[in-house]
Amino acid sequence: MQMETITNQPLIATPRFDLRPLRRSDKGLIEFFAGDPRVALTTATIPHPLPPGTIEAFIARALADPRVEDVWAMDGLKTGGSEVMGVISLTRLDRNQSEIGYWVAPAYWNSHLASEAVQALVSANPQGNAAMFASVFHDNPASAKVLTNAGFVYLGDAETYCVARQAAVPTWTYSRKL
């Protein structure tokens, strides 16, 4: 059996769940949740419908070394939750900065899971960043609230292409100095 080791990507524990590096065995749950249009339409990069091989390629990139994005599963097994309740990531940018991205499975919406995950990742600051950025679609104010609750400050408006919508979508951009 091939071991999957992720260098320089720690497990980040919270009382309710762990943020842990992805595993190949996460493919089924990630495909199930990411294939839901309610999830895909809130992200820039998840296509809908989900083409075969998309999640396999995503996990392969997350396991690669070197890589530009560190990805964690929101794993609730320790408290009776699902092995994958959502995904959170940090994409390396220049000048000691990163961009945070996340999605939560609809079954866990309105449970403060995203807020706890973002706050845990910011507190751990596993890449040793000086600042983190994030953007959310205008039609997703709940995600904007997650960021402001974690200490992110509104920077301005922009647009991001959404693969699932096949259109440019207005966004709010936020930053947090660390």
Rank of each mutant, 00 (worst) to 15 (best):
M3V: 12
T14F: 04
T14R: 13
D18H: 11
L19Q: 06
R20T: 09
R20A: 00
R23C: 03
R24I: 04
S25Q: 14
A34P: 01
P37R: 15
L41V: 08
T42F: 03
T45P: 04
I46V: 15
T54A: 07
I55F: 08
E56Q: 13
I59M: 09
A60H: 10
L63D: 10
L63Y: 07
D65C: 08
R67N: 01
R67D: 04
E69N: 04
V71W: 13
W72D: 04
W72I: 03
A73E: 05
M74V: 15
D75H: 06
D75T: 03
G76S: 04
G76E: 01
L77G: 04
T79Q: 13
G81Y: 02
V84E: 10
V84S: 10
I88M: 03
L90F: 06
T91S: 14
T91H: 13
L93W: 09
D94T: 13
D94P: 04
N96E: 13
E99Q: 11
G101Y: 10
V104W: 09
A107L: 13
A107H: 11
A114S: 06
A114L: 04
A114R: 05
S115K: 07
E116P: 04
A117S: 11
V118P: 10
V118A: 09
Q119N: 09
Q119L: 05
V122D: 12
A124G: 10
Q127R: 14
G128E: 08
G128F: 00
G128N: 04
A130Y: 11
M132W: 15
F133D: 03
S135E: 13
D139W: 14
N140F: 01
A142H: 10
S143N: 01
K145R: 15
K145P: 00
N149W: 05
A150H: 07
F152G: 10
V153D: 09
Y154A: 11
G156K: 01
D157W: 00
E159F: 06
T160L: 13
C162H: 06
A167L: 08
V169Y: 03
P170R: 00
K177Y: 12
K177F: 09
K177Q: 13
